[in-house]
Amino acid sequence: MKIAIISVSDKGKKLALDLKEKLNNDSTIIKADLYHKNVKKYFPILFDEYDAIIAIMASGILIRSIASLIESKVSDPAILNIDDNGEFVISTLSGHLGGANKLTKKVSSLIDATPVITTSTDVNNKLGIDVLAQDLYLSIDNTKEILFFNKAILEGREIFLTVNPNKKFDYLFNYLNNNTLEINVSIYYSSKMEMDEILVSLDDHELILKEKKLVIGIGCRRGKECEYIYEGLMNSINDLNIDKSRINMLSSAEIKKDEEGILKLSKKLNIPVNFVELDKLKLFKSNDVEKSEFVFSKFGIYGVCEPSALISAGFDSKLIYKKTSYSGVTIAIAISK
């Protein structure tokens, strides 16, 4: 998640600096940038450039600043509102699909504040269908139906999920079994379903949840054993609460195509690995990728795990886990749009 923190007072700026430092230590935060004052100038830019905006200011200033920019729960960034004293963190916009509710809890714990969340499913301890999609990195084909299904969930009605019997959906079953929020579902199987899709239905209402392509980018020292790479991968997906059955692909640079540890890991997990050509890595540009001068001096590329993950996930993909080191192994995670 890319986050902009904007403040208007000197007290708010001090809180913003402290929060930025703490967020930058979190591998799930790709970057956190600071902005101060000039809210009318900055907000239109921040809406397009960031996944989330943390506004340290009075709620009136925030609401007036974003009112004309709001378009849809599908595209609007997560908006959080914090008072200058850092006592309350309010999930203001895009609580579910934008991830504002989750971020509110994270930020609250970092600054020892009280989280304020008002979405109906959350306050009633129910699992919204859009929360399920967000947590499992699934796209929703018909977002207009979210309201109907969440209302049905609030009423305790049974929701039907249909999947292809030839595809393992362990990540879905484990998620439903382990989630503490309430949802009444029944699972059905149909060979007519696409392998990467989940049909959600009730009465005459339907929507399709489709897997976004989730790619683990791997870099490692020469000869690194499979067990160490596996350990790094598991630490990373555990940070994101991702089941390993949800991974669609492993990826690295072609200079690693004979790396036994990576090849054994691919076989162990039964997940394909894509080795990206050096020419593609040399041409690839992204402001979100950490540049390594050491890697560049040896191979002529600025990185392995982040760019290979992004390239393998496809055009317009984004990092959800930045380059993180684990004893000679680097892991990054990218997701398709």
Rank of each mutant, 00 (worst) to 15 (best):
A32Q: 06
G99R: 00
E259P: 04
E145R: 09
I29L: 03
E227H: 15
V107A: 01
Y35W: 04
D316Y: 11
S139G: 14
K318P: 10
N25L: 14
K323P: 02
F284G: 02
I229E: 07
S336V: 10
S72Q: 04
L80R: 03
E182N: 15
L132P: 07
L250E: 09
S190G: 05
K151R: 15
T119A: 07
K291I: 10
E254T: 10
S27D: 08
I237E: 02
C226V: 14
L69M: 08
G261T: 11
Y171G: 08
V295C: 05
D204G: 05
I242A: 04
E260V: 14
D170M: 06
N124D: 09
V200K: 05
I331N: 05
G314M: 07
Y50N: 01
E197T: 15
I140M: 12
A52N: 03
D83P: 07
L283V: 10
V185A: 02
Y228N: 12
D10N: 15
I129Y: 08
V74I: 15
N150A: 06
L93T: 00
K267L: 11
I159G: 00
L283D: 12
H96W: 02
D204Q: 15
R64H: 01
K168I: 09
G95A: 01
D112F: 11
L138E: 04
V39L: 09
L103H: 00
N166H: 11
I301P: 03
S297W: 00
T162N: 04
I187L: 12
I53T: 02
T330F: 04
N235V: 10
Y171L: 05
T143N: 12
E227A: 14
A152R: 15
I229L: 06
F88Q: 00
S266Y: 01
K213D: 05
I311N: 04
F296P: 07
V74S: 15
G217R: 02
D243G: 03
D26W: 11
E260Y: 12
K257R: 13
V273F: 02
